[in-house]
């Protein structure tokens, strides 16, 4: 277990203890919500991990870096960014997937673009966003989000 995992677990346990001291009923309700969300997420966790395993085991790193590595340049970043915008993967699970792509030779820009478009842009939730906030605002938000995701990705590629 690395330092990050230890810190997060300590925070969670401390918060949980505080919650139980403050209000037992609410704390138990929180645990129930936590358990339900965990179970709801579980199949997706396994799916992503198996995909990562197959990806690292079967796709050679030079193939991955050809499509989304340094030499793929702007096109690679745009493709991965578009994939992130369309795909519907829980944000929490995009990070291990991104880490495995990095391990396999994907560029920092491509990985950053993927995570950023995945979290910021929701094509599946777009109809709901249009219904609640209007067409103009929803399309502007998602469209400009794509542009700034690419900008973030390119800057990160330069710095890291």
């Amino acid at each position: 277990m690395n330092a990050t995992a230890i810190v997060i677990n300590v925070i969670a346990v401390a918060a949980l203890l505080m919650a139980f001291i403050k209000d037992r009923k609410k704390a138990i309700k929180s645990l129930k919500i936590a358990g339900k969300s965990f179970i709801r997420m579980l199949p997706m966790v396994f799916i992503i991990i198996i995909i990562i395993g197959l990806l690292l085991g079967f796709v050679p790193p030079d193939q991955i870096s050809k499509f989304v590595g340094e030499q793929s340049g702007m096109t690679g970043v745009l493709i991965v960014g578009a994939a992130g915008a369309v795909l519907h993967i829980p944000a929490l699970l995009s990070f291990p997937l991104a880490a495995s792509l990095l391990e396999e030779g994907a560029s920092v820009s491509a990985v950053a673009a993927f995570i950023t478009t995945l979290t910021m842009i929701g094509t599946i939730t777009l109809p709901l966003e249009i219904k609640e906030l209007g067409k103009k605002m929803a399309i502007l938000r998602n469209g400009i989000s794509f542009v700034i995701a690419i900008i973030i990705a390119l800057i990160m590629g330069v710095i890291l």
């Binding site: 995992a5 609410k26 129930k32 966790v45 395993g53 929490l92 495995s100």
Partner: peptide, 25 residues
């Protein structure tokens, strides 16, 4: 690979879910 990533997830996901639950309530 599957085992490594699974272990990492097991260490972190329950804690994240507990924090989610606490905030939701």
């Amino acid at each position: 690979t599957v085992w490594d990533y699974l272990v990492e997830m097991v260490f972190i996901l329950p804690a994240v879910m507990i924090l989610l639950g606490l905030f939701a309530v």
